[in-house]
């Protein structure tokens, strides 16, 4: 059988033989559960009993659930605050770090350290920073100057930025490294030409550096957007007693999914939320990949 194949066909057989492992892996580990989750979103299931058909019931419930819309909004607030802030901060740091020779390696390590730290440990330390007097670091400092305390986590307005801050800080190191690699990749001859022409630093920045950094910027935007849309560990660990609280002010979509699935044991409803998250991630990624393509 194999003997009768043409060389071209044999090549194809071999190619598939080698591809089989990753293809099977992806089919079993990725595509099967994804398909299954979509199926469950049309069913009712409490993990123990039989699955029963629910049709669009779960999606209708989602549409009419005020908590879902609050959570939906929160998720985009994380994205729309987190991505630009971390992008600008990491660029400023990378831009200046790139020009610095003194203690360059040491500083780079310092910026990178939070990225390597466990998100859980970091979230708990920040959680304690934010506490009221007598244990909270920030409020103790305020109180020692006679300034009234700030409610960081016990407030519907302050809690989300307070949770977001360490998440931005944690991702900064990685983005700084990527930016620095991008900056190094810009040929020095452009800068030399600009210098000969006597151009100011602002023009160099806006006409040479930023345009040539565009692929790097798009990569970081895509990467950090997906990260902020999926934010979970920081929120969960900083608000474990009242996950996503107070009054759902910090609850992102992933936390709502977790809560519905593993505290409420309402798998169908949780799966419907997952499908919505999947769709959002898909749309955001497709838009951003399109932007990336237009740069080439």
């Amino acid at each position: 059988m194999y003997r009768n194949l043409t060389i071209r066909q044999k090549q194809i057989v071999w190619a598939w033989a080698f591809l089989a492992v990753p293809v099977i892996f992806y089919a079993v580990i990725r595509f099967y559960p994804t398909g299954n989750a979509i199926l469950i979103s049309f069913q009712n299931w409490n993990l123990l009993g039989d699955r029963t058909w629910a049709g669009l019931e779960n999606y209708a419930k989602l549409w009419n659930d005020p908590v879902f819309w609050r959570v939906f909004k929160n998720t985009f607030v994380y994205l729309l605050l987190g991505t630009p802030i971390s992008l600008v901060l990491s660029f400023i740091i990378a831009y200046h770090l790139d020009k610095l020779r003194f203690m360059h390696g040491f500083l780079r390590v310092l910026y990178f350290l939070p990225f390597m730290t466990s998100a859980v440990a970091m979230a708990w330390v920040w959680r304690w920073f934010y506490q009221d007097v007598p244990i909270g670091l920030f409020n103790n400092i305020l109180a020692s100057f006679g300034i009234p305390q700030i409610k960081f986590l016990q407030s519907t307005t302050n809690a989300l930025p307070a949770v977001l801050a360490p998440a931005v800080w944690a991702g900064l190191g990685f983005q700084v490294i990527i930016f620095m690699a991008g900056l190094r990749a810009i040929p020095a001859s452009y800068y030399e030409a600009a210098k000969i022409d006597g151009v100011g630093w602002f023009t160099v920045l806006t006409q040479i550096t930023l345009p040539l950094l565009r692929p790097t910027i798009v990569f970081i935007v895509v990467f950090s957007s997906i990260g902020f849309l999926r934010i979970f560990d920081h929120v969960f660990n900083m608000t474990t007693n009242n996950p996503g609280g107070p009054l759902n002010a910090t609850k992102p979509l992933v936390l709502m999914i977790y809560d519905t699935a593993f505290n409420g044991f309402d798998m169908g409803y949780a799966a419907a939320q997952t499908v919505v998250l999947f769709t959002i991630l898909l749309i955001v990624s497709l838009i951003q990949l399109r932007l990336l393509r237009s740069t080439e």
Binding site: Q154, S155, T156, N242, G245, P246, L247, D259, N263, G264, F265
Partner: peptide, 20 residues
């Protein structure tokens, strides 16, 4: 029926009074 869900409603009952 769902202890953590029912607890959450009590938590929010107090939060609405205190924070809002």
């Amino acid at each position: 029926a769902n202890e953590s869900g029912q607890r959450q409603l009590m938590v929010e009952m107090v939060e609405r009074i205190q924070l809002e």
